[in-house]
Design a protein around this nucleic acid. Structure first.
Lengths: 204, 204
DNA sequence: CAAAACATACCAACCAGTTGGTATGTTGTC
DNA sequence: GACAACATACCAACTGGTTGGTATGTTTTG
Protein backbone atom coordinates (compact mmCIF):
# COMPACT_ATOMS: atom_id res chain seq x y z
CA UNK A 1 0.00 0.00 0.00
CA UNK A 2 2.59 2.64 0.98
CA UNK A 3 4.09 4.25 -2.09
CA UNK A 4 7.82 4.44 -2.73
CA UNK A 5 8.66 8.12 -2.19
CA UNK A 6 7.86 8.08 1.52
CA UNK A 7 9.55 4.79 2.38
CA UNK A 8 12.84 5.37 0.60
CA UNK A 9 16.05 5.15 2.53
CA UNK A 10 18.66 7.89 2.48
CA UNK A 11 20.75 6.25 -0.24
CA UNK A 12 17.85 6.05 -2.69
CA UNK A 13 16.70 9.54 -1.86
CA UNK A 14 20.21 10.85 -2.49
CA UNK A 15 20.44 9.04 -5.82
CA UNK A 16 17.05 10.35 -6.92
CA UNK A 17 18.08 13.85 -5.89
CA UNK A 18 21.35 13.43 -7.78
CA UNK A 19 19.50 12.66 -11.02
CA UNK A 20 17.52 15.87 -10.96
CA UNK A 21 20.05 18.22 -9.39
CA UNK A 22 23.02 17.12 -11.51
CA UNK A 23 20.96 17.21 -14.69
CA UNK A 24 19.93 20.75 -13.83
CA UNK A 25 23.19 22.25 -12.57
CA UNK A 26 25.86 19.84 -13.74
CA UNK A 27 28.11 17.67 -11.61
CA UNK A 28 30.80 20.15 -10.54
CA UNK A 29 28.34 22.90 -9.61
CA UNK A 30 26.28 20.50 -7.51
CA UNK A 31 27.35 20.57 -3.87
CA UNK A 32 27.02 17.78 -1.35
CA UNK A 33 24.98 20.04 0.90
CA UNK A 34 22.59 20.77 -1.92
CA UNK A 35 22.15 17.09 -2.65
CA UNK A 36 21.44 16.43 1.02
CA UNK A 37 18.90 19.25 1.16
CA UNK A 38 17.14 18.01 -1.98
CA UNK A 39 17.06 14.49 -0.59
CA UNK A 40 15.98 15.62 2.85
CA UNK A 41 18.87 13.91 4.63
CA UNK A 42 21.93 15.11 6.49
CA UNK A 43 25.55 15.12 5.51
CA UNK A 44 26.25 12.27 7.91
CA UNK A 45 23.87 10.10 5.91
CA UNK A 46 25.56 11.12 2.68
CA UNK A 47 29.02 10.09 3.77
CA UNK A 48 27.68 6.98 5.40
CA UNK A 49 26.49 5.72 2.02
CA UNK A 50 29.09 7.29 -0.29
CA UNK A 51 32.71 7.62 0.60
CA UNK A 52 33.06 10.79 -1.52
CA UNK A 53 31.24 13.04 -3.94
CA UNK A 54 33.00 11.18 -6.72
CA UNK A 55 31.64 7.86 -5.44
CA UNK A 56 28.15 9.32 -5.59
CA UNK A 57 28.78 10.36 -9.19
CA UNK A 58 29.71 6.81 -10.11
CA UNK A 59 26.70 5.43 -8.20
CA UNK A 60 24.41 7.96 -9.88
CA UNK A 61 25.61 6.84 -13.32
CA UNK A 62 24.97 3.21 -12.40
CA UNK A 63 21.57 4.12 -10.96
CA UNK A 64 20.78 5.99 -14.19
CA UNK A 65 21.62 2.86 -16.15
CA UNK A 66 19.26 0.79 -14.01
CA UNK A 67 16.44 3.29 -14.42
CA UNK A 68 16.81 3.64 -18.17
CA UNK A 69 17.33 -0.09 -18.67
CA UNK A 70 13.97 -0.67 -17.01
CA UNK A 71 12.25 2.09 -18.95
CA UNK A 72 13.44 0.86 -22.34
CA UNK A 73 13.03 -2.82 -21.55
CA UNK A 74 9.33 -2.25 -20.93
CA UNK A 75 8.76 0.10 -23.85
CA UNK A 76 6.32 -1.19 -26.49
CA UNK A 77 8.60 -0.87 -29.51
CA UNK A 78 10.04 -4.32 -28.83
CA UNK A 79 6.73 -5.85 -29.95
CA UNK A 80 7.28 -5.15 -33.65
CA UNK A 81 8.00 -8.28 -35.65
CA UNK A 82 10.20 -6.46 -38.16
CA UNK A 83 13.59 -5.58 -36.61
CA UNK A 84 13.73 -2.32 -38.58
CA UNK A 85 10.38 -1.38 -37.06
CA UNK A 86 11.89 -2.01 -33.65
CA UNK A 87 14.78 0.32 -34.43
CA UNK A 88 12.46 3.00 -35.80
CA UNK A 89 10.16 2.39 -32.85
CA UNK A 90 13.06 3.00 -30.49
CA UNK A 91 13.82 6.35 -32.09
CA UNK A 92 10.11 7.29 -32.07
CA UNK A 93 10.03 6.38 -28.40
CA UNK A 94 13.03 8.63 -27.75
CA UNK A 95 11.15 11.45 -29.45
CA UNK A 96 8.10 10.84 -27.25
CA UNK A 97 10.31 11.20 -24.20
CA UNK A 98 11.14 14.80 -25.15
CA UNK A 99 8.49 16.17 -22.81
CA UNK A 100 8.55 18.61 -19.91
CA UNK A 101 11.44 20.84 -18.96
CA UNK A 102 14.92 20.44 -20.38
CA UNK A 103 16.35 18.96 -17.15
CA UNK A 104 13.59 16.34 -17.24
CA UNK A 105 14.37 14.78 -20.59
CA UNK A 106 18.14 15.25 -20.88
CA UNK A 107 20.70 12.59 -20.07
CA UNK A 108 22.55 12.40 -16.78
CA UNK A 109 25.59 10.56 -18.05
CA UNK A 110 25.94 12.72 -21.13
CA UNK A 111 26.02 15.74 -18.87
CA UNK A 112 28.44 14.23 -16.38
CA UNK A 113 30.93 12.85 -18.86
CA UNK A 114 31.40 16.29 -20.40
CA UNK A 115 32.66 17.64 -17.11
CA UNK A 116 34.60 14.68 -15.81
CA UNK A 117 36.15 12.94 -18.80
CA UNK A 118 39.62 14.31 -18.15
CA UNK A 119 39.56 14.82 -14.43
CA UNK A 120 37.59 11.91 -12.94
CA UNK A 121 38.18 8.62 -14.78
CA UNK A 122 35.88 6.62 -12.52
CA UNK A 123 32.89 8.76 -13.47
CA UNK A 124 33.89 8.85 -17.12
CA UNK A 125 34.04 5.05 -17.23
CA UNK A 126 30.68 4.73 -15.49
CA UNK A 127 29.14 7.11 -18.03
CA UNK A 128 30.76 5.22 -20.90
CA UNK A 129 29.36 1.93 -19.57
CA UNK A 130 25.91 3.48 -19.39
CA UNK A 131 25.96 4.88 -22.91
CA UNK A 132 27.66 1.92 -24.51
CA UNK A 133 25.51 -0.74 -22.86
CA UNK A 134 22.39 1.16 -23.87
CA UNK A 135 23.63 1.40 -27.46
CA UNK A 136 24.34 -2.31 -27.38
CA UNK A 137 20.64 -3.02 -26.82
CA UNK A 138 20.00 -1.44 -30.21
CA UNK A 139 22.79 -3.23 -31.99
CA UNK A 140 21.06 -6.62 -32.17
CA UNK A 141 17.96 -5.13 -33.82
CA UNK A 142 20.08 -3.19 -36.29
CA UNK A 143 22.05 -6.33 -37.10
CA UNK A 144 18.80 -8.25 -37.62
CA UNK A 145 17.44 -5.47 -39.82
CA UNK A 146 20.57 -5.60 -41.99
CA UNK A 147 20.17 -9.35 -42.49
CA UNK A 148 16.42 -9.04 -42.90
CA UNK A 149 16.86 -6.57 -45.75
CA UNK A 150 19.79 -8.46 -47.23
CA UNK A 151 22.08 -5.45 -46.98
CA UNK A 152 25.86 -5.52 -47.13
CA UNK A 153 26.59 -2.07 -45.78
CA UNK A 154 29.96 -0.35 -45.48
CA UNK A 155 29.05 0.60 -41.92
CA UNK A 156 28.59 -1.59 -38.86
CA UNK A 157 25.56 -2.11 -36.65
CA UNK A 158 27.64 -0.99 -33.72
CA UNK A 159 28.66 2.30 -35.32
CA UNK A 160 25.06 3.03 -36.27
CA UNK A 161 23.86 2.25 -32.76
CA UNK A 162 26.45 4.65 -31.37
CA UNK A 163 25.48 7.23 -33.97
CA UNK A 164 21.91 7.20 -32.70
CA UNK A 165 23.27 8.03 -29.26
CA UNK A 166 25.43 10.79 -30.69
CA UNK A 167 22.41 12.36 -32.35
CA UNK A 168 20.41 12.19 -29.13
CA UNK A 169 23.21 13.59 -27.00
CA UNK A 170 23.78 16.38 -29.50
CA UNK A 171 20.06 17.07 -29.65
CA UNK A 172 20.10 17.54 -25.87
CA UNK A 173 22.87 20.10 -26.17
CA UNK A 174 20.90 22.08 -28.75
CA UNK A 175 17.82 21.85 -26.53
CA UNK A 176 19.83 23.26 -23.65
CA UNK A 177 21.22 26.06 -25.80
CA UNK A 178 17.79 26.99 -27.18
CA UNK A 179 15.79 26.28 -24.05
CA UNK A 180 13.31 23.83 -25.50
CA UNK A 181 12.71 20.37 -26.92
CA UNK A 182 11.64 21.45 -30.41
CA UNK A 183 15.12 21.58 -31.91
CA UNK A 184 15.89 18.18 -30.42
CA UNK A 185 12.75 16.68 -31.90
CA UNK A 186 13.72 17.94 -35.35
CA UNK A 187 17.12 16.32 -35.04
CA UNK A 188 15.47 13.05 -34.06
CA UNK A 189 13.30 13.39 -37.17
CA UNK A 190 16.46 13.63 -39.25
CA UNK A 191 17.75 10.51 -37.56
CA UNK A 192 14.55 8.64 -38.41
CA UNK A 193 14.84 9.84 -42.00
CA UNK A 194 18.43 8.60 -42.16
CA UNK A 195 17.48 5.17 -40.87
CA UNK A 196 14.66 4.84 -43.37
CA UNK A 197 16.93 5.93 -46.22
CA UNK A 198 19.66 3.53 -45.12
CA UNK A 199 17.34 0.54 -45.15
CA UNK A 200 15.12 1.43 -48.10
CA UNK A 201 17.59 3.03 -50.45
CA UNK A 202 17.81 2.16 -54.10
CA UNK A 203 21.49 2.85 -54.43
CA UNK A 204 23.03 3.70 -57.78
CA UNK B 1 58.67 41.24 -36.55
CA UNK B 2 57.75 40.28 -32.98
CA UNK B 3 55.33 37.34 -32.92
CA UNK B 4 51.95 37.42 -31.19
CA UNK B 5 52.31 35.00 -28.27
CA UNK B 6 54.86 37.13 -26.45
CA UNK B 7 53.10 40.44 -26.98
CA UNK B 8 49.64 39.39 -25.82
CA UNK B 9 47.99 41.41 -23.12
CA UNK B 10 46.44 39.88 -20.02
CA UNK B 11 42.94 39.79 -21.46
CA UNK B 12 43.96 37.78 -24.52
CA UNK B 13 46.10 35.45 -22.47
CA UNK B 14 43.18 34.82 -20.14
CA UNK B 15 40.81 34.11 -23.02
CA UNK B 16 43.29 31.72 -24.63
CA UNK B 17 43.78 29.99 -21.30
CA UNK B 18 40.00 29.78 -20.86
CA UNK B 19 39.60 27.91 -24.14
CA UNK B 20 41.94 25.13 -23.14
CA UNK B 21 41.23 24.93 -19.42
CA UNK B 22 37.44 25.04 -19.69
CA UNK B 23 37.44 22.51 -22.51
CA UNK B 24 39.52 20.21 -20.34
CA UNK B 25 37.85 20.59 -16.95
CA UNK B 26 34.52 22.20 -17.68
CA UNK B 27 33.35 25.66 -16.67
CA UNK B 28 32.28 25.09 -13.08
CA UNK B 29 35.38 23.12 -12.13
CA UNK B 30 37.68 25.78 -13.55
CA UNK B 31 38.75 28.26 -10.91
CA UNK B 32 39.75 31.85 -11.48
CA UNK B 33 43.12 31.17 -9.86
CA UNK B 34 43.69 28.30 -12.26
CA UNK B 35 42.88 30.49 -15.23
CA UNK B 36 45.28 33.16 -13.97
CA UNK B 37 48.04 30.61 -13.46
CA UNK B 38 47.53 29.17 -16.95
CA UNK B 39 47.58 32.66 -18.45
CA UNK B 40 50.54 33.76 -16.35
CA UNK B 41 48.74 36.78 -14.91
CA UNK B 42 47.48 37.72 -11.48
CA UNK B 43 43.99 37.78 -10.10
CA UNK B 44 43.99 41.54 -10.12
CA UNK B 45 44.43 41.48 -13.88
CA UNK B 46 41.58 39.02 -14.20
CA UNK B 47 39.08 41.19 -12.38
CA UNK B 48 40.34 44.27 -14.13
CA UNK B 49 39.30 42.84 -17.49
CA UNK B 50 36.28 40.76 -16.42
CA UNK B 51 33.86 41.85 -13.77
CA UNK B 52 33.17 38.25 -12.75
CA UNK B 53 33.87 34.66 -13.66
CA UNK B 54 30.54 34.63 -15.45
CA UNK B 55 31.60 37.61 -17.57
CA UNK B 56 34.70 35.69 -18.59
CA UNK B 57 32.49 32.78 -19.61
CA UNK B 58 30.48 35.03 -21.89
CA UNK B 59 33.64 36.61 -23.30
CA UNK B 60 35.16 33.18 -23.86
CA UNK B 61 32.11 32.08 -25.84
CA UNK B 62 32.31 35.22 -27.98
CA UNK B 63 36.05 34.71 -28.42
CA UNK B 64 35.38 31.11 -29.44
CA UNK B 65 32.95 32.36 -32.09
CA UNK B 66 35.57 34.73 -33.47
CA UNK B 67 38.20 32.01 -33.62
CA UNK B 68 35.95 29.44 -35.28
CA UNK B 69 34.44 32.00 -37.66
CA UNK B 70 37.92 32.73 -38.91
CA UNK B 71 38.90 29.10 -39.17
CA UNK B 72 35.85 28.11 -41.19
CA UNK B 73 35.79 31.24 -43.31
CA UNK B 74 39.26 30.43 -44.59
CA UNK B 75 38.66 26.69 -45.03
CA UNK B 76 38.95 25.45 -48.61
CA UNK B 77 35.54 23.76 -48.87
CA UNK B 78 33.97 27.07 -49.93
CA UNK B 79 35.74 26.78 -53.30
CA UNK B 80 33.46 24.04 -54.62
CA UNK B 81 31.10 25.23 -57.33
CA UNK B 82 28.38 22.76 -56.40
CA UNK B 83 26.64 23.83 -53.16
CA UNK B 84 26.19 20.21 -52.12
CA UNK B 85 29.94 19.74 -52.46
CA UNK B 86 30.41 22.70 -50.15
CA UNK B 87 28.14 21.11 -47.55
CA UNK B 88 29.88 17.76 -47.85
CA UNK B 89 33.21 19.57 -47.82
CA UNK B 90 32.24 21.27 -44.58
CA UNK B 91 31.52 17.93 -42.92
CA UNK B 92 34.73 16.44 -44.29
CA UNK B 93 36.59 19.44 -42.88
CA UNK B 94 34.99 18.84 -39.49
CA UNK B 95 36.21 15.26 -39.65
CA UNK B 96 39.74 16.42 -40.44
CA UNK B 97 39.66 18.58 -37.34
CA UNK B 98 39.26 15.51 -35.13
CA UNK B 99 42.98 15.39 -34.38
CA UNK B 100 45.02 15.45 -31.21
CA UNK B 101 43.68 15.02 -27.71
CA UNK B 102 39.99 15.17 -26.88
CA UNK B 103 40.25 18.63 -25.25
CA UNK B 104 41.88 19.90 -28.45
CA UNK B 105 39.09 19.10 -30.89
CA UNK B 106 35.96 19.40 -28.74
CA UNK B 107 33.73 22.44 -28.60
CA UNK B 108 33.96 25.09 -25.89
CA UNK B 109 30.40 26.31 -26.13
CA UNK B 110 28.92 22.81 -26.28
CA UNK B 111 30.74 22.04 -23.06
CA UNK B 112 29.77 25.27 -21.34
CA UNK B 113 26.10 25.26 -22.27
CA UNK B 114 25.65 21.83 -20.69
CA UNK B 115 26.69 23.19 -17.33
CA UNK B 116 25.16 26.64 -17.44
CA UNK B 117 21.89 26.35 -19.37
CA UNK B 118 19.70 26.53 -16.27
CA UNK B 119 21.88 28.49 -13.92
CA UNK B 120 23.63 31.17 -16.01
CA UNK B 121 21.44 32.57 -18.80
CA UNK B 122 24.09 34.98 -20.04
CA UNK B 123 26.49 32.14 -20.81
CA UNK B 124 23.74 29.96 -22.25
CA UNK B 125 22.73 32.74 -24.63
CA UNK B 126 26.33 33.36 -25.67
CA UNK B 127 26.73 29.64 -26.41
CA UNK B 128 23.48 29.58 -28.33
CA UNK B 129 24.60 32.54 -30.43
CA UNK B 130 27.86 30.76 -31.19
CA UNK B 131 26.23 27.50 -32.25
CA UNK B 132 23.31 29.06 -34.10
CA UNK B 133 25.37 31.59 -36.02
CA UNK B 134 27.79 28.88 -37.06
CA UNK B 135 24.92 26.69 -38.23
CA UNK B 136 23.56 29.64 -40.18
CA UNK B 137 26.72 29.72 -42.29
CA UNK B 138 25.76 26.25 -43.52
CA UNK B 139 22.14 27.04 -44.16
CA UNK B 140 22.72 29.04 -47.32
CA UNK B 141 24.67 26.23 -48.96
CA UNK B 142 22.04 23.69 -47.97
CA UNK B 143 19.33 25.91 -49.38
CA UNK B 144 21.27 26.30 -52.61
CA UNK B 145 21.79 22.55 -52.80
CA UNK B 146 18.06 21.96 -52.41
CA UNK B 147 17.30 24.32 -55.29
CA UNK B 148 20.20 23.01 -57.33
CA UNK B 149 18.83 19.47 -57.12
CA UNK B 150 15.23 20.56 -57.57
CA UNK B 151 14.17 18.98 -54.29
CA UNK B 152 10.99 19.78 -52.38
CA UNK B 153 11.89 18.25 -49.03
CA UNK B 154 9.67 17.92 -45.96
CA UNK B 155 12.54 19.29 -43.89
CA UNK B 156 14.09 22.74 -43.82
CA UNK B 157 17.63 23.87 -44.54
CA UNK B 158 17.76 25.36 -41.08
CA UNK B 159 16.79 22.13 -39.34
CA UNK B 160 19.37 20.19 -41.34
CA UNK B 161 22.07 22.74 -40.52
CA UNK B 162 21.23 22.42 -36.82
CA UNK B 163 21.18 18.64 -37.16
CA UNK B 164 24.78 18.68 -38.39
CA UNK B 165 25.70 20.55 -35.23
CA UNK B 166 23.78 18.08 -33.09
CA UNK B 167 25.70 15.19 -34.65
CA UNK B 168 29.01 16.93 -34.04
CA UNK B 169 28.18 17.85 -30.45
CA UNK B 170 26.99 14.32 -29.76
CA UNK B 171 30.09 12.91 -31.40
CA UNK B 172 32.18 14.96 -28.99
CA UNK B 173 30.33 13.49 -26.03
CA UNK B 174 30.99 9.97 -27.27
CA UNK B 175 34.64 10.85 -27.83
CA UNK B 176 34.84 12.09 -24.26
CA UNK B 177 33.20 8.94 -22.93
CA UNK B 178 35.43 6.64 -24.94
CA UNK B 179 38.59 8.70 -24.73
CA UNK B 180 39.30 9.06 -28.44
CA UNK B 181 38.27 10.60 -31.74
CA UNK B 182 37.50 7.35 -33.57
CA UNK B 183 33.89 7.05 -32.45
CA UNK B 184 33.31 10.69 -33.36
CA UNK B 185 34.75 10.16 -36.83
CA UNK B 186 32.37 7.26 -37.42
CA UNK B 187 29.42 9.39 -36.46
CA UNK B 188 30.58 12.09 -38.86
CA UNK B 189 30.75 9.38 -41.55
CA UNK B 190 27.11 8.56 -40.86
CA UNK B 191 26.28 12.23 -41.22
CA UNK B 192 28.01 12.37 -44.58
CA UNK B 193 26.11 9.27 -45.66
CA UNK B 194 22.84 10.87 -44.61
CA UNK B 195 23.55 14.02 -46.58
CA UNK B 196 24.44 12.05 -49.70
CA UNK B 197 21.30 9.94 -49.38
CA UNK B 198 19.14 13.01 -48.83
CA UNK B 199 20.38 14.68 -51.97
CA UNK B 200 20.83 11.67 -54.24
CA UNK B 201 17.91 9.52 -53.21
CA UNK B 202 15.62 7.83 -55.70
CA UNK B 203 12.60 7.83 -53.46
CA UNK B 204 9.77 5.33 -53.95
C1' DC C 1 23.16 -5.60 22.46
C1' DA C 2 25.66 -5.07 18.37
C1' DA C 3 25.83 -3.13 14.15
C1' DA C 4 23.91 -0.45 10.64
C1' DA C 5 21.59 3.92 9.66
C1' DC C 6 21.31 8.16 10.47
C1' DA C 7 22.17 13.13 12.78
C1' DT C 8 25.00 17.13 14.76
C1' DA C 9 28.91 19.80 15.10
C1' DC C 10 32.83 21.03 13.28
C1' DC C 11 37.21 21.92 10.36
C1' DA C 12 40.84 22.99 7.05
C1' DA C 13 41.24 24.09 2.35
C1' DC C 14 39.51 26.56 -1.23
C1' DC C 15 37.09 29.97 -3.89
C1' DA C 16 35.24 34.29 -6.06
C1' DG C 17 35.79 38.65 -5.36
C1' DT C 18 37.99 43.06 -2.89
C1' DT C 19 41.36 46.28 -1.44
C1' DG C 20 44.92 49.42 -1.84
C1' DG C 21 48.49 50.29 -4.46
C1' DT C 22 52.15 50.99 -8.61
C1' DA C 23 53.57 51.77 -13.29
C1' DT C 24 52.66 53.43 -17.64
C1' DG C 25 50.26 55.80 -20.86
C1' DT C 26 46.92 59.67 -22.64
C1' DT C 27 44.78 64.05 -22.67
C1' DG C 28 43.87 68.70 -21.81
C1' DT C 29 45.69 73.30 -20.89
C1' DC C 30 48.55 77.36 -20.74
C1' DG D 1 56.26 71.45 -25.03
C1' DA D 2 55.84 71.06 -20.18
C1' DC D 3 53.03 69.62 -16.60
C1' DA D 4 48.98 68.61 -14.13
C1' DA D 5 44.91 65.62 -14.35
C1' DC D 6 43.20 61.57 -15.43
C1' DA D 7 42.79 56.75 -17.35
C1' DT D 8 44.31 52.12 -18.14
C1' DA D 9 46.70 47.95 -16.98
C1' DC D 10 48.28 45.38 -13.78
C1' DC D 11 49.84 43.31 -9.11
C1' DA D 12 50.14 41.07 -4.16
C1' DA D 13 47.77 40.36 -0.10
C1' DC D 14 43.60 39.71 2.06
C1' DT D 15 38.59 38.29 3.28
C1' DG D 16 34.36 36.14 4.17
C1' DG D 17 31.69 32.66 2.77
C1' DT D 18 31.58 27.94 0.87
C1' DT D 19 33.06 23.15 0.16
C1' DG D 20 34.15 18.32 0.67
C1' DG D 21 35.07 15.72 4.30
C1' DT D 22 35.49 14.08 9.45
C1' DA D 23 34.68 13.06 14.34
C1' DT D 24 31.41 12.03 17.38
C1' DG D 25 27.22 11.40 18.76
C1' DT D 26 22.06 9.21 18.75
C1' DT D 27 18.52 6.22 16.97
C1' DT D 28 16.75 2.32 14.70
C1' DT D 29 16.75 -2.52 13.50
C1' DG D 30 17.62 -7.49 13.36
Amino acid sequence: MPSQPAKQDARSKLLDAALTVIRTKGYAATTVDELCAAAGVTKGAFFHHFKSKEALGVAAADYWSEMTNGLFAEAPYHDHADPLDRVLGYVAFRKELLQGGVPDFTCLVGTMVQETYETTPAIRDACDRSISSHAATLEADIEAAIRNRGLTPDWTAKSLALHTQAVLQGAFILAKAKGGAEVAAESVDHLTRYLKLLFTQKMA
